[in-house]
Design a protein around this nucleic acid. Structure first.
Lengths: 337, 337
DNA sequence: ATTAGCACTGAGAACCATGGAGTGCCAGGA
DNA sequence: TCCTGGCACTCCATGGTTCTCAGTGCTAAT
């Protein structure tokens, strides 16, 4: 069905179209690539490729353009991830060293990735559900309120104000803090609910209401609240592209956190690259975009994802190389922290 | 120089141009507004307005368009802030209630503002420099490291990891924590440096290195680090506008945090509205945009700013109304927290 | 001071002709 | 059987021309 040469032609079509953004014809192909055959032969191959749905013509007397299916084949079988240049590697190093806290690591990473790929970069904060409790702090705010701060081993901090407790006793808060940390310090977040189950019964009755309030907020903030924090950068790069769907739709989609989360997809193993092309994205406004994403994490434990959004007409090998490199690097940084 | 009627004409030109996005001619003005004079008279007035630089013609046989100077006059003397409709007020209430922490308040505010104005909204986190220390927490991370968490009375949390301390003694950390909180708890951040100046001398010599490291990180994070956190939303609304400067330039400018900070400008009194029109913005890429900003805060203490960025051709009265209302409301929410 | 009338201007739409890149197909050659 | 040169055909993009029309500035009359 698809012999070697037809695949070579498809690869050439994709590469040229990505470069020039213009439908590519048989003559141009014969000139720019050494395929060893004449334009007429290439034309015949193109007809076959078109019949199989890998390429298409915008109109009769124009060159060919890859379809989503064509890009898919290209990514799966005709290209390999392109390693970063030495200069790019150095850029990563200098960009990410010297970040003081998690917020800054994430902020720098997303900018770095958008600059490397010249596209829109997405970075998800390390997931809470996979990390463990480093420390729980309870701070009386005066009046009837307490601020709870949970610190995880990935450096992430969750804060919450708990209100309407009745009068708050300093010593009671201290006791509760101690109990809490003994009960759940070092524990995986997923194991927290079970571990705190019978804590209230160990608290003096007069403080029990406070304890249950604190615990319910704790559980809510750590376990039930699965929405993840996400940042993106490089939207300016979209302006250069002319989308089939309107630019507005794309920007709108990118502002929806839920869309971004689904876009990055389910977590797998660190450094696994996922490519979703055109209509493979569920979202209307993203029909003419592709998403390259990867997990990052410490060791072989995946903490979250990063990704890049661009036109389907993108440099897949280069983008995949950048995403993979940055994912690995952020994993190292987090491990060292 | 500029009599009543000329001003009325200018107002009509601005309003019509904002509505239609097309140069407005004398006939159209006479039709749509009851100015009580004929098109010919309006033409004469327009010539005067053009000579004074308030309006201009894209080309000879076209209608008139307001200049930056024209918008400026319109904002200063010809329009008043438009109060929100009842429906909009209700929208604000329902949008902002139920936010659990500062991050969420800010995130919801910025989305609300962008939806109300259909433009790009900017919200600055409450400034650290004006708030006071609620509590300092030190958490030994094992090994040679400590995590420091500073909680302020505006609900903001700053975290930092301190490394390379030599072996960390649990009790020494506890002592230091106690001293720190006694020394600076409740203090204005600006007063912290002075208050901690002679703390190291009160620490046993064997822990003094740790104490100085912690203090230097504390000072750095609170006082020296003036860059503020900023979020924005509604960039999709820019796609609908056609900018003189390229859309790309605008998006690029909006991704620069430093630009945004300067854009919002110096803090004044809460609820003071500032409008910066076109070239009044220092930034190249923002020559064809206007910024409406306001302070928000608790009582008459300004904590930070919010703002809206849109084309110079914007609905100033409506935008100003929305910005002012949201600024007031976020102040109330923060006061209640 | 205002207005009706009028000639003038220039952008943009509509229309048309032309050039050229690219195609499909066929017949001849390895 | 596969490849290639040749050829007629297609249709988009380009550029020139014309036409329309909203809007102007000016002048003379009210």
């Amino acid at each position: 069905m698809l012999d070697e040469r037809k695949l070579a032609v498809l690869r050439a079509v994709v590469e040229d179209f990505v470069n020039t953004n213009e439908p590519v014809g048989s003559k141009a192909l014969a000139d720019r690539h050494k395929l060893g055959v004449s334009p007429a032969t290439i034309r015949n191959d193109m007809v076959a490729l078109e019949e199989d749905g890998y390429i298409t013509q915008p109109h009769t007397s124009a060159g060919r353009v890859p379809t989503d299916k064509g890009y898919r084949l290209f990514v799966d079988r005709l290209s390999s991830v392109k390693p970063l240049s030495a200069a790019e590697r150095r850029a990563i190093e200098s960009f990410l060293t010297g970040a003081v806290d998690l917020d800054e690591i994430v902020a720098r990473t997303v900018r770095l990735l958008s600059q490397l790929t010249r596209q829109v970069a997405i970075v998800q904060y390390p997931s809470l559900t996979r990390s463990s409790v480093q420390h729980v702090e309870l701070v009386p705010l005066g009046g009837q309120r307490i601020m709870m701060v949970v610190i995880t081993n990935t450096g992430r901090v969750e804060q919450r104000v708990i209100d309407g407790l009745g009068e708050v006793e300093e010593t009671a808060v201290n006791d509760l803090r101690g109990m809490l940390n003994r009960a759940i310090g070092g524990l995986h977040l997923g194991d927290v609910p079970e571990a705190v189950e019978d804590l209230p019964s160990q608290v003096p009755t007069e403080d029990r209401q406070m304890a249950t309030s604190v615990l319910s907020v704790l559980l809510e903030s750590l376990v039930e609240r699965h929405e993840e924090k996400i940042v993106l950068a490089g939207t300016a790069n979209l302006a250069a592209v002319d989308f089939a769907a309107s630019l507005r739709d794309v920007l709108e989609a990118l502002e929806e956190n839920m869309v971004l989360i689904r876009l990055l997809g389910e977590a797998k193993d660190p450094s696994m690259l996922t490519v979703r092309i055109g209509a493979e994205n569920f979202h209307e406004g993203l029909r003419s975009t592709s998403v390259v994403s990867a997990d990052y994490g410490v060791g072989n434990q995946s903490l979250a994802k990063i990704g890049v959004v661009g036109p389907t007409r993108m440099d897949y090998p280069g983008t995949m190389g950048a995403v993979r490199a940055v994912a690995r690097y952020i994993g190292q940084i987090l491990a060292g922290q």
